[in-house]
Design a protein around this nucleic acid. Structure first.
Lengths: 129, 129
DNA sequence: TTAGCAAGTATACAAAAGGATAGTGTTGTT
DNA sequence: AACAACACTATCCTTTTGTATACTTGCTAA
């Protein structure tokens, strides 16, 4: 991506206006929420998980936040929710194609930052004030 | 990135442990904070900005959050802070090389999501419960 | 008919993030 | 002596986020 394209995208993102008036920034911010990302990562690892499985994998999440985050992911098309009306009921979650691309971008970002992490951690320890 | 590499990265990210014990996830989450991202975007657009300029560009941010976010970005090596001891004092902020790559990844993510945004917004309106 | 499971909901409360706004320190200008 | 400029700090208070945990629903098996 060259600088011109970058400036175009920054114009799209309407950087100097609040996110309530810029759906792109709003959609992005929702995706990059802490719990949301964690769920995308565990679904990337295990492919298909039931509600209780996700809860076990995302350590520390409460049922309330899990439901909320899963609903958001489903609503925004990143996750598919499948109900099997057995007894007891079974509900499975997995990434959609869109969700898988999102995962890829996330892991790509992580892949890039990994070599920098030791330095960053060291800086954090030394950084006063 | 193939599936094997993806699984390696997910192992690196230690997806099933809380971020306090995984510095990679912690560094990522810090970068992807709402205000932090906005500041990176405006610095990408304007290259060099003073404190009051950033405040003007990131609409709605309070001085408290601006200082906090700028310090975090500086601490983690994404932003350079330069003090000119004039009177009145002048302080300039700009992205480091690392920060510029981060901006690129962010804009790349945005670039990918943009075509999906209209559908997502429509889904959000229709999504009941 | 009582127990039990899965996938949530509901309620109460605690913690963290964030907004509004006044104050600080330094030095030149009036 | 008072004021202005700039880049923050400090304080108070509201809002949002999140936890803990009890409850619900629908059915089936003992």
């Amino acid at each position: 991506m060259n600088d011109k394209r970058m400036q175009e995208m920054l114009a799209n993102l309407d950087v100097e206006n609040p996110s309530e008036v810029c759906p792109i920034k709003d959609v992005l911010a929702t995706m990059l929420d802490k719990w949301t990302m964690m769920i995308v990562l565990v679904l990337g690892k295990h492919k298909v998980l039931r509600f209780a499985d996700v809860k076990r994998s995302v350590v520390g999440i409460s049922p309330k936040m899990l439901t909320k985050s899963l609903r958001t992911l489903e609503r925004d098309g990143h996750v598919k929710r499948t109900v099997y009306p057995e007894v007891p009921i079974r509900v499975e979650y997995n990434l959609t194609d869109q969700g898988s691309i999102f995962l890829k971008k996330l892991v790509d970002l992580a892949d890039w930052i990994v070599p920098h992490v030791p330095t960053i951690v060291k800086n954090r320890e030394e950084f006063i004030k």
